[in-house]
């Protein structure tokens, strides 16, 4: 922590060091939204078709055609792309939180954060490209 000039009275000092608020706040917002998005995602892929598989109407829970049919609906395109973006933000922001409390990474916090952003954006592009295989 940077040593602070304690000579001047607090009232006259300009402290402009709010830095951790937005990552903290957005972690909560993304986490809250993910409860619903992940809930729908797991339900659709693992449980909604379970009866059909058990009764033998359907070979497997997840196959290319099944995903393609689901992603023909605009709502699921929206859900899957939001899910991809939010889960990457929430996961990598969480990793940043852990790394900030680990000396070697915390000493290079700016570089570490930039690296995580790069990883996140890159993975989003890759994941979106993969998803488009079902849509286009």
């Amino acid at each position: 922590m940077k040593p602070r000039d304690m000579s001047a009275p607090l009232m006259s000092r300009q402290e402009k060091i709010i830095t951790g608020f937005w990552p903290w706040f957005l972690q909560r917002v993304s986490g809250f939204l993910l409860i619903f998005l992940v809930g729908v995602h797991i339900w659709m892929t693992h449980f909604s078709g379970l009866g059909d598989v058990v009764r033998g109407h359907q070979e497997e829970l997840v196959l290319f055609e099944i995903v393609k049919q689901r992603l023909a609906q605009g709502l699921f395109i929206f859900i899957d792309f939001s899910l991809l973006a939010l889960v990457l933000y929430h996961g990598l922001n969480g990793m940043r939180n852990i790394l900030l409390e680990w000396g070697p990474a915390a000493r290079h916090a700016a570089g570490m954060t930039a690296g995580l952003w790069l990883l996140g954006v890159g993975t989003f592009i890759y994941g979106a490209w993969a998803l488009l295989a079902f849509i286009l």
Binding site: E15, I17, P23, E101
Partner: peptide, 11 residues
């Protein structure tokens, strides 16, 4: 402002 710094509340 001081307690809202990166090594303050959010840790």
């Amino acid at each position: 402002q001081i307690v809202a710094s990166e090594q303050g509340l959010w840790r």
